[in-house]
Computed example of a mutant assay.
Amino acid sequence: MTYRLFRLAPGSYDVLLNGVIIASLVQSGPTNDATWTAELLVDLPPEEMPAPFTKAEHTFGSLEEARQWLGGAELQDTKIHG
């Protein structure tokens, strides 16, 4: 499974798995005390959630921590449509 993060605005990303948007990743709070939350867009039972998700929301202390949790997800600054 390959995750990619597409930046929508500062502190906001779409999370794509194999080219499909499955979650959002959003920064909350001031930059120096920010938390990041990854949230699935579809409510699934735990056994159907894509790894590493085990619940609908997961919180992280930094963008880098979230990226690593998603298997080193690649960052993209702009979303390419087409």
Rank of each mutant, 00 (worst) to 15 (best):
E47L: 15
A38N: 12
Y3C: 11
L63N: 02
E65F: 09
I21F: 09
T78Q: 11
Y13S: 06
I80Q: 06
M49W: 05
L63G: 03
L5A: 06
Q68Y: 02
Q68K: 12
N32K: 01
A66W: 07
L40G: 10
I21R: 12
E64K: 14
E47R: 08
E65N: 05
V15G: 05
E47A: 03
E39F: 09
G11K: 10
F60W: 08
V15S: 06
K55F: 08
G29S: 09
H58L: 07
E47M: 05
P10L: 15
F53W: 11
P45C: 13
E47S: 14
T31A: 15
I21S: 11
R67W: 05
P30T: 06
G72D: 01
I80E: 04
G82I: 02
Y13Q: 08
D77S: 02
I22W: 08
E74L: 12
Q76I: 02
L25K: 10
N32R: 06
L5G: 06
L70G: 00
R67P: 02
L41I: 07
A73K: 04
W36H: 10
R67Y: 02
E64R: 14
M1T: 04
A23H: 12
G11E: 10
E39D: 10
S24P: 10
A34W: 08
E65P: 02
Q76S: 10
G72L: 02
F60C: 09
P46M: 10
L8F: 03
G71T: 00
A73E: 01
A9C: 11
F53S: 03
L75K: 04
S28C: 13
Q68D: 03
T35K: 11
L44G: 09
G82N: 04
G61S: 12
F6A: 00
F6I: 00
L5W: 04
M1R: 09
M1L: 10
D77A: 08
L40V: 10
D33P: 02
F53I: 07
A56M: 08
N18D: 04
P50E: 07
T2I: 13
D14S: 09
E48P: 05
I21L: 08
P46E: 09
M49E: 07
T59P: 09
L41E: 00
F53D: 01
E74F: 07
E65G: 09
L17A: 13
D33Q: 14
S28M: 06
A38G: 08
R67L: 05
